[in-house]
């Protein structure tokens, strides 16, 4: 995985984390409109970051939820446990 792919994926992971955290908060504070607004913003950013990534590197999600190009990129290495995230 090259530096640019890693950078794009890291950005997605960050946005995904923000959305996860807000999601858990909203589960117990469903009437918090500020949190809801923030969640909507983050999830929109997340979706467009994912689309941009998937256009180049293939689907991030299985079962038809990711974007599939002309080749079956889903089986491409590396899998998440194989990515070297060490800062060089």
């Amino acid at each position: 995985m090259n530096a640019q792919q890693k950078e794009m994926l890291l950005r997605i992971m960050e946005l995904q984390f923000a959305a996860t955290e807000l999601n858990l908060y909203l589960d117990t504070h469903p009437d918090d409109m500020r949190a809801l607004q923030e969640f909507r913003m983050r999830s929109q950013e997340l979706m467009s970051a994912k689309m941009e990534y998937e256009r180049v590197y293939g689907p991030l999600l299985n079962f038809g939820l990711g974007m599939t190009g002309r080749t079956w990129q889903w089986i491409q290495d590396p899998w998440p446990w194989e990515v070297n995230w060490r800062r060089s």
């Binding site: 997605i12 995904q16 999600l61 060490r86």
Partner: peptide, 15 residues
């Protein structure tokens, strides 16, 4: 459930 082909956090190991 569906699988996302990424970790939730970039788990690093030095050695």
């Amino acid at each position: 459930w569906v699988y996302q082909k990424m970790l939730q956090y970039p788990a690093r190991v030095r050695s």
